[in-house]
């Protein structure tokens, strides 16, 4: 890998501007006060369904589990007006199993490569994992950036690795996971967003989290990244997509994230080419709320999820 000139965090933040923590959290608190009712709620729920990267990332995943995930992604509910999800998201070894079921459908196969979730493997290993997932049929690669390198100040290395993964992806869409909880500060999240966006292609994503740490997507880090995407777009014209992942479990939360998209990036980002939810349980609640809106009756959770038990 060719090494670029060093990038200092200090000069990067000075270039892109800092973030005030309290200010950004006040901003997103206003999203929570929005009241989304009736037709606008149904529209939002369906939009959210269409944005879900239905995810299973467990050591105990089997081809059978992935098969049922794929079927659910294709047909979240009997109601034909409820769309398919955007994608399923699985480990590389399971891509070929998903491919059998999803070939020819609108549902994409995303795979977490690059020694997910830590990324602590040699670059060559990570790149070969990416190439394997791509050749097995992955439409999208979710990579993790090197947080350790970022925190050690080796920003150019982080960026060069993203570029290397991008090249290994070929035509496959890339999602760069910043793992916001490990970057800790909003300043770092904004800086890492720019670092990634500058080597991503239009339509590639920046993504909050692996879902494997204690804190995942929040309205706060989502907002920081949306604003970074907006500033980058206004500066370059390149449309980068966004994927919050982990921790978004309820329809109500998803709608709050969509409000953030609407009020930060506007209509052009309100589609699944520009915005995704990385989630496993969210789809159940979205469908449950859609049925509630249609029937007027509150629904029991177990109808919508094998995982939620029968209590």
């Amino acid at each position: 890998m060719a090494r670029s000139n060093p990038i200092s965090l200090r000069s990067l933040i000075s270039e892109i501007g800092p973030v005030d923590q309290v200010g950004i959290e006040e901003r997103v608190a206003k999203y929570i006060t929005r009241s989304i009712k009736k037709a606008s709620k149904v529209q939002a729920l369906k939009l959210a369904v269409s944005m879900v990267d239905l995810t299973t990332l467990e050591g105990k995943d089997t081809p059978g589990k992935v098969a049922s995930l794929c079927l659910k992604a294709l047909h979240p509910h009997d109601d034909p007006s409820i769309p398919s999800t955007a994608a399923v998201c699985v480990y590389p070894r399971l891509v070929k199993h998903a491919k059998k079921l999803l070939r020819g459908s609108s549902v994409k196969i995303a795979s977490v490569a690059t020694a997910f979730p830590s990324g602590q493997a040699p670059l060559a290993t990570r790149l070969s994992e990416v190439r394997a997932a791509v050749s097995d049929g992955a439409d999208e690669i979710d990579m993790v950036i090197s947080r350790g390198a970022f925190l050690a100040g080796e920003l150019a290395l982080v960026q060069d690795e993203i570029a290397a993964v991008r090249d290994a992806c070929g035509k496959t869409t890339l999602k760069a996971i910043l793992e916001t909880s490990e970057l800790e500060t909003y300043d770092n999240i904004r800086a890492a967003s720019f670092l990634a966006m500058r080597v991503l292609r239009p339509g590639d994503f920046i993504k909050t989290s692996t879902g494997k740490t204690s804190s995942n997507a929040t309205l706060g880090n989502n907002q920081v990244m949306l604003e970074a995407i907006r500033d980058f777009y206004l500066e370059t014209g390149t449309e980068i997509a966004m994927k919050p992942a982990g921790g978004i479990r309820t329809a109500k939360q998803a709608i709050q994230f969509l409000i953030a998209v609407k009020e930060t990036l506007g209509d052009a980002w309100l589609n699944n080419a520009h915005y995704r939810f990385g989630a496993s349980a969210l789809l159940n609640d979205l469908v449950r709320q859609l049925v509630k809106e249609k029937t007027g009756a509150y629904q029991a959770p177990y109808t919508f999820s094998e995982a939620s038990g029968s209590y």
Binding site: S14, S35, I36, S40, A44, L234, K262
Partner: peptide, 23 residues
């Protein structure tokens, strides 16, 4: 800080693709 590039021609569309119903 470096002056951030600012292309005035580029705009975002804040339209009615998804409108909030009266609440």
């Amino acid at each position: 800080p470096a002056k951030r590039p600012n292309n005035p021609a580029r705009e975002l569309l804040f339209g009615d693709l998804w409108e909030y119903d009266p609440a």
